[in-house]
Amino acid sequence: MSESIIWYLREFLRTEWIRKFLLAKTDPLVTPPYFKDYPTLTGKECTACYQCMMICPAPGAIAVLRHDDGWRPEIYPGHCIRCGLCVEACPEDVLQSGRVLEAQHRDRTGFRATFHLSIDREICMRCGNCCISCPVGREGEPDGAVLKIEKGGVQILNSDLCTGCKTCEVNCPNRGIRVARVVEGVQEAAA
């Protein structure tokens, strides 16, 4: 027992403790610069390549929308989980968050992705939601579409145009269309 009391006495008689006790001050409530907050726009031009939508792991967190002066990604707080993957995936540095962009430039890291579309003919009920919702090839040449309803079923026209944005997957009522997004994290060797 005596050891314990002496221990506590010694604990409370340390100069550091006394100083802290008398001059107690809560740490300032600052957000450190390295915190990955919601992605913000850097002001660079978005080319609507949908890489951010492709990699986003949370449902409904990001959408690339068309405004009067061009395309712009929109982040929805309440859905966004602040993982920072969209910042890393964006090839044009449109978004930034914390130190992610800085670290990416420093380490020359990035993601490389390939996409594979597959349609389950047995489940597909040919509603055409996927073709209508697909954001690729909206204007311009009519051949620039990824999907098309033809011969009584969905046909994949140009699978190399697919950006993996999974809009078709989300809009498909019965999971007939699937986009496999094979992503790998890569790093260029230091020059």
């Binding site: 792991p57 949370a58 449902p59 409904g60 309440g78 859905h79 966004c80 989980i81």
Partner: peptide
């Protein structure tokens, strides 16, 4: 996020 949207 969970009570707002259900998150992931």
């Amino acid at each position: 996020n969970c009570p707002i949207s259900g998150c992931v």
